[in-house]
Design a protein around this nucleic acid. Structure first.
Lengths: 323, 323
DNA sequence: TCGATTGCGGCCAGGATCCGACCTATACGG
DNA sequence: CCGTATAGGTCGGATCCTGGCCGCAATCGA
């Protein structure tokens, strides 16, 4: 069996392990002569993979960071870990990379062996929703299907539940998937209505690729993200919370991160936080988690929610405290 | 330039795109004849990558799910998304895959171009801690460094802050990284003390690979995870919460997931939940998030914490409610 | 300072392999 | 029914790959 390309792939995967491989060990492992290993290393370098070598005893080869990403060779467990990690990130765990997460997830799912797919699904079922009151959940798997259809330029079929509750079945030309204000939107051209439409992904179910290719038309507005922002301006309710937190600035900055909102120092014991989100539950949970005394100034909905939360939590311990 | 193995790698990356590639297009792109493309596809199939083909017009090749993971070819943004996703997962977002996440992260970081590394760091700084009171945070990057040292069989140097506050500088032979009870532990042999030691990763700072290789010795206890569990038995305080939740079983099951603990139905309006965690803050936050009325029976620490929480949240809205 | 170990690259010869060209079969859509 | 796509066979010639040999350079430890 003299399978050169296969050997190169194996070599690449071995070198990806964070350790050094002496040429002799690689030769034995791949059942070829050390000379061939040297030649293979040369080949990899010519292909642009930065293989570094240290000479002398205890020396060896390893793959280092270069200009471009080498192909990642993963074992089963690592692939599952990445899939699960992406599924959480594709929600709104980290702002700014939602779209890339979904693309990567689509790529991964396409080639993920089915036995691993089951493990991913099982692990995901066991995952705790991080925040309450987050509105209808979307399945990251659905997002991946949509992203794949966008990339493949295939028509997409799905059921849509409009704002007034009417259910319709649609078949559209998906153009782009946009994450905006903690929600996902699909920008697409609807051939039945002969016009561009924006669908909320959380109101869409059973997306299916049809296999029907289409020639992508040009979006009138140029950029899809701007298009969504423009169309939705004023239609989404955003809650703006203004809070005084009784804790030093450094502690809060470390605690909240930069995504929480604008944090300003009032004096050495207090800070003012302005935070925006689309649900008061989310705002409330964040505040309750900070762990210091605080005062809420706005909005009234948040005050009402926190009042209710305090009552609920207070009642939960009354019996145990013997009152 | 007739570089067969390189062409195969390129082909693999092209086929990973979620779209179909007609043989003629591939031939033109790779500067070979269509016949060679067919042969290459054959080769890939022999290597175990399931290339599927649809015949007829609009047909083409694409890579589907098979028995093994093919090498993943990622663009910059996708690589960053995966790194960020893994960093969160390597915390304790999902139980059961922490170790695999760290391994995958170590592998990724090793080959991640430096310009992307900066983006990952920047995004991570903006990440919001998901849960409060989680004790000292661990930098997933540190975990990756440790995992790399374990895989490379290199000695590891770090500063350690013992339970009594004493700071020491250590150099050890890292053996394995174990995740146990929502904490990370490093099992290693300490040559200075000539004995096996377990270090808590959250108390360890500035881990550095030394480049000094060592021959791994055999752990007396066989399995590292069992060793940690054995040594730590009784030393970690585990809080066991018993709670009655006033909501139907189905709603709670969907809300809590399976990892929350044992959930039993009392009647159609109430359930009993037994949940374990190492911090009452964590338990308390989870309960407050459920969004229904509940009663806490045990433990007293949790009752005290929730009482404090209710007071804090209640006080935060007093001014706003004009009382 | 010296020796051992490891990577680096050139050379050569034999043999396996790859490529392109040509052909036919088959499946799918219009 | 035709055009286009994949699928696969065969063949000859060019190419490339492998393994063995060599001397050289770098590095580490004794």
């Amino acid at each position: 069996m003299t399978d050169t390309p296969g050997r190169l792939l194996t070599l690449l995967s071995l070198l990806q392990t964070p350790r050094e491989w002496p040429g002799s060990e690689l030769a034995e492992r791949l059942q070829v002569s050390p000379r061939t290993i040297r030649r293979d290393i040369d080949r990899l370098r010519e292909l642009g993979y930065p293989v570094e070598a240290t000479r002398g005893p205890e020396g060896g080869y390893r793959l280092t960071a270069g200009a471009a990403m080498p192909p990642l060779l993963l074992d089963d467990e690592e692939a599952v870990a990445i899939a699960v990690g992406l599924r959480t990130a594709a929600g709104h765990a980290v702002e700014g990379i939602e779209e890339a997460s979904v693309r990567a997830l689509a790529k991964l799912i396409q080639v993920l062996p089915s036995r691993l797919r089951h493990r991913v699904a099982a692990l995901n079922a066991a995952t705790v929703p991080v925040l309450p009151g987050d509105g209808p959940r979307i399945d990251p798997e659905d997002l991946a299907v949509i992203a794949a259809a966008v990339a493949a330029r295939e028509r997409l079929r799905f059921d849509y539940r409009a704002g007034d509750g009417a259910e319709t079945r649609r078949q559209v030309e998906p153009h782009r998937l946009v994450s905006y204000g903690r929600r996902w939107y699909l920008v697409c051209y609807d051939p039945d209505r002969t016009d561009w439409r924006i669908f909320r992904v959380d109101r869409l179910s059973h997306p299916q690729r049809t296999g029907l290719r289409f020639d992508p038309r040009e979006l009138p507005a140029g950029d899809a993200a701007a298009y969504v922002a423009d169309k939705l301006a004023g239609r989404t309710t955003v809650h703006r919370a203004v809070v005084t937190l009784h804790a030093p600035y450094e502690r809060l900055a470390a605690r909240l991160g930069t995504a929480a909102g604008q944090l300003e120092e009032i004096d050495e014991h207090r800070c003012r936080l302005v935070s925006r989100a689309d649900s008061v539950e989310w705002l409330g949970a964040r505040l309750a988690m900070v762990g210091c005394e605080f005062e809420v100034h706005e909005p009234p909905e948040l005050v009402a929610y926190l009042h209710e939360l305090a009552g609920r939590v207070g009642r939960s311990v009354e019996a145990a405290r013997g009152r």
